[in-house]
Amino acid sequence: MSEVIVVTSGKGGVGKSTTTANLGVGLAMRGKKVVLIDTDTGLRNLDLLLGLENRIMYDLVDVIDGRVEIKKALVRHKKYENLQLLPTSQVKDKSAVNPADLMALCDELRKEYDYVIIDCPAGIEQGFQTAIAGADTAIVVTMPEVSAVRDADKIIGELGRSEKDNIKLIINRIRPAMVDSGEMMDMDDINDILAIKCIGQVPDDIKVVTSANRGEPVVGDSDSQAGKAYENIVGRLLGEDIPFMEFEKEGFFKRLKKAFKF
């Protein structure tokens, strides 16, 4: 049984592409056949995060317009052979791909791959409607900040209207020290607000940035808290029952010290 997952958020810059890249690599590491589709037309990025930017010959629009077969446009990952990327076009306007096109493409890819993961553009316009069209599951990425959570709620509403009822939440860029001192919402707070099943909480981690610099998603890196968090999410997607990890916490005295600034 294959699954088509769209990674979406509403608000921009919360970590959709980072999530897509990490889940793709993580699932491939677990032996799954995975294809990632970048649908953020005009703002191609997933190729960079995966280190595949120099291998692109064709793109999503070439496939949709029938200029090239899907197989020819897919870019194989260097290290994980069962991971493929269908990059988006860097030039075409956003209306070039419509929901029916993408749905047909997903159904085609379903036959060959275990997971099709779609990286959605920010916003709730046409690009969003197109990206979600063929998906069985939506992963909503948010951050523990008021505007990101509000936009996530909006997206959850839109997904419901499009009869996408299988929705999962990832909370990205958590800062454990801030949560600890009560200055940032935690997973329970956001669960109370959005009432969506949370499948992951990813800490803010400089390794996410350094690994993006190198084009190697952090998911394999056991020294990184974010890498571990993504690994756990992959396990949960595969149906494993994995408890949420405890982030390193500051002790009471450290907090007291901070509060009094000595």
């Binding site: 200055e183 940032m184 919402m185 707070d189």
Partner: peptide
């Protein structure tokens, strides 16, 4: 704490 304030405000606005 601002975390709780954020939660309350969000619950209202949503």
């Amino acid at each position: 704490k601002s975390g709780k304030v954020a939660k309350k405000r969000l619950q209202m606005v949503l």
